[in-house]
């Protein structure tokens, strides 16, 4: 730990930036970098140019659009909460425990990230579906059927969004290390108190950005939802499903809804993420 004040260090870094001649940044890097950025940003512009702005309010305020938006926000919100409640502890165990086979476990958690979502949806259907491993028991004992309900949407979204939260939070936990926790223990704090008063506050920025990513991923979820939950208006037809449907019937409506998703996603990422990343500093 240096003895310079961090505020000073910040100021120094800024002063340094202004005079930095950019070592380690060959000029040719700009070409592929600009291409990459264009690939990400230009389609959104294309979408905006194609939009029928005059009909926009009418298209966005249609009942089906509003219903889908509300459903999307609700399900994504609940999914994010589930990711935090269950993925948080999972991340803590991946980062802190000394279980054998932890590396295999860690790779398995990443599976939804690399799997085509529609495959995930099918896997869920065959597990939780009426004839599935768990679905059968649920149906027999409790009379609960999950597929093609709002619960299925939430489950599908949680499935695809979980890795985002776990990876982000596990990274934060590893970076934070265990030194603060050891100090807290020597100050007389029990494991539970250390977790609440030290570990969680320390990784809060990582937790917030993980939750934001998970929320964004849940909002955009399509493949697993359509395979596992179907497309029933008001119950399982989230915004992405509605866009897909409208594309066949009313292309202007599809574009308008797409733009709405873009705006919601941008809001989530731009407004929440930096605040989360800065966190406690």
């Amino acid at each position: 730990m240096t003895a310079t004040l961090p505020a000073q260090a910040d100021a120094e870094r800024k002063a340094h930036d202004r005079h930095d001649i950019g070592i380690g940044l060959p000029r040719w890097l700009w070409l592929p970098a600009v291409a990459a950025f264009t690939l990400v940003a230009l389609p959104v512009v294309g979408l905006a140019l194609e939009a029928d702005w005059a009909r926009m309010p009418e298209l966005l305020l249609s009942e089906s659009a509003l219903t889908a938006l509300r459903l999307s926000l609700e399900t994504a919100g609940i999914s994010t909460l589930l990711c935090v409640l269950f993925g948080g502890p999972l991340a803590a165990i991946l980062a802190r425990s000394r279980l054998p086979g932890l590396r295999v476990l860690r790779s398995l958690v990443l599976l939804p990230l690399v799997l085509p979502p529609v495959v995930g949806g099918l896997a869920l259907l065959f597990t939780v579906g009426r004839t599935g491993l768990i679905g059968q028991a649920l149906h027999l004992w409790f009379g609960i059927t999950i597929p093609f309900t709002t619960a299925a949407v939430i489950l599908a979204q949680t499935f695809v969004a979980m890795p985002f939260l776990v990876v982000s939070l596990e990274g934060a936990l590893r970076t934070a290390g265990q030194r603060y926790e050891a100090v807290a223990a020597t100050l007389g704090a029990s494991a539970g108190l250390v977790f609440r008063r030290v570990t969680v506050p320390l990784v809060l920025p990582g937790l917030v950005s993980g939750a934001v990513l998970a929320f964004a991923r849940a909002m955009g979820e399509f493949g697993a939802t359509i395979a596992f939950a179907g497309s029933l208006e008001g119950t399982t037809r989230t915004l992405p499903l509605l866009v897909y449907l409208e594309r066949e019937v009313d292309i202007d409506s599809a574009i308008a809804l797409s733009l709405m998703i873009v705006v919601v996603s941008l809001l989530v990422i731009v407004v929440l993420r930096p605040r989360g990343a800065e966190g406690l500093r």
Binding site: Y180, A182, V183, V198, P201, L202, L204, L280
Partner: peptide, 13 residues
């Protein structure tokens, strides 16, 4: 048993 390490490790939050 109290511990004071090389770095103070004050809780930053």
């Amino acid at each position: 048993v109290g511990l004071l390490a090389q770095q103070g490790l004050l809780f930053p939050h």
